[in-house]
């Protein structure tokens, strides 16, 4: 039992670390603001969630687990607020999203010239 818990928390923490890094790689790789926000939300929800669940298994039933639950709730409730506020503010300042099918090679050259439809 102890062994199974240990292995499960290892798996959760390692996969959480993986998703944390992947989200930030996306933040660097994506072509423009809105797509970057999608990448950052991988870190904020999946990466953070898996890491926190892994830590819960490590902590066992104690006050520490309860604090981790609060931390997870904090992530779940604040991440969408920030994302939404950021998207609203960017739209308000006329940062236009790229729309349509895109491929990496064209993105690098056409990035500044693409005119795309804004939301109606």
């Amino acid at each position: 039992m102890q062994m199974a818990m240990e292995i499960a928390s290892w798996a959760l923490i390692l996969s959480g670390s993986f998703f944390v890094v992947v989200g930030m790689v996306g933040l660097v790789r994506m072509p423009e603001l809105y797509t970057r926000m999608h990448a950052a939300s991988v870190t904020d929800t999946l990466g953070a969630g898996l890491l926190i669940f892994g830590m819960m298994l490590q902590a066992g039933l104690s006050l520490v687990t309860l604090k981790l639950v609060f931390l997870l709730a904090l992530y779940i409730f604040t991440a969408p607020v920030v994302t939404h506020a950021l998207a609203r503010a960017a739209l308000h300042e006329d940062v236009k999203p790229l729309l349509g099918r895109l491929r990496a090679p064209t993105l690098l050259t056409r990035r500044s010239k693409v005119k795309s439809g804004r939301r109606s």
């Binding site: 670390s17 993986f18 944390v20 890094v21 989200g23 930030m24 790689v25 933040l27 660097v28 603001l33 970057r36 926000m37 950052a40 870190t43 904020d44 990466g47 920030v82 950021l86 503010a89 960017a90 300042e93 940062v95």
Partner: peptide, 28 residues
């Protein structure tokens, strides 16, 4: 892993063409 991710976020914060990219990187 978290430190590596933070380094990537710093890259975006430095490169970020608009101020919102920097705010996003800062929040991350």
């Amino acid at each position: 892993a978290i430190l590596a991710a933070m380094a990537l976020a710093v890259v975006r914060a430095i490169k970020g063409p608009t101020v919102f990219d920097r705010v996003l990187a800062g929040n991350s």
